[in-house]
Design a protein around this nucleic acid. Structure first.
Length: 256
DNA sequence: ATGGTGGTTTTACCA
């Protein structure tokens, strides 16, 4: 089965991109971030017409997450105990035998800012919640826009980004603590090389010049490791007209 | 050169 995550930066604008990409990539599970749609305006019928079940947690203008799946989506959680947060960034659900967490991690704006403190606090609380999920069922996949490049291989210019937002040591340590619960960065099961990115800034012709970061991750519970067959980033939709600034990241799992 | 692009209940804010 194919599991994917994609920050679409407005599903209103990117619905045709999602339709086109699903037709070719045929993901069985697709986590979307930055839908930027309140639930009453979510294009449920258009997604269902593609042959998917869908669950969503959105708000006007900012944030918003959704989960599409070929199989029914059950036991949905969008609010985490101890994190009373109007920002819609989390959707955890059961899809077949998998427990799936879709995260739109806080960007953080700048190291040392109020939003940075919120990011680190958010990561600690979400990680504590996911620790419980992993204890319940280690067939957990945690995917989304992490807004953290795990290490310098994931950064086009590690000198320029040194200790900057998305790359700072406290952010990387927060991600490490999440991984240490028993999750694997699936992309790194297959490719240890630098130069693979999932996000390119719209500014400065970032994509054309390949000035990217790998911040969109599919983390797999260690119990899923033996079933992992491939982990990739599909850059093709980043080159389409009026693209999202993110590319989809995928994990292919063999059947149990 | 402290900018730049793109999205959104837009002339500010977020990424």
């Amino acid at each position: 089965m194919r599991i994917a995550t994609w920050n679409v930066n407005s599903l209103n604008v990117r619905l045709p991109h999602v339709e086109l990409w699903c037709a070719s990539a045929q993901p069985d599970v697709l986590a979307l971030q930055e839908t930027k749609l309140e639930d009453a305006k979510f294009p449920r019928a258009a997604i269902e017409a593609l042959g998917y079940h869908v669950a969503f947690s959105g708000q006007k203008t900012y944030n918003g997450v959704a989960l599409m799946a070929r199989q029914p989506i059950l036991d949905v959680v969008t609010d985490i105990p101890g994190l009373d947060d109007p920002q819609r960034r989390v959707l955890v659900a059961t899809v077949g035998e998998l427990r799936v967490a879709n995260l739109y991690v806080v960007n953080g704006q700048a190291v040392g800012s109020e939003k940075y403190a919120y990011k680190l606090d958010w990561l600690a609380k979400v990680s504590a919640f996911l620790a419980g999920e992993l204890r319940n069922d280690p067939r957990l996949v945690v995917m989304g826009d992490f807004n953290i490049a795990p290490d310098d291989r994931d950064v086009h210019d590690p000198v320029a980004w040194h200790e900057q937002i998305l790359c700072s040591t406290p952010e990387r340590e927060a991600l490490r603590r999440l991984l240490d619960l028993g999750l694997l960065d699936s992309f790194r099961l297959f490719d240890a090389d630098p130069g693979h990115y999932s996000w390119w800034d719209y500014r400065q012709a970032g994509f054309r010049r390949n000035l990217g970061l790998r911040i969109d991750l599919v983390l797999a519970g260690e119990r899923l490791k033996a079933r992992a067959r491939a982990a990739t980033i599909d850059r093709i939709p980043r080159a389409w007209e009026r693209p999202s600034d993110h590319a989809p990241a995928l994990l292919e799992l063999a059947d149990d």
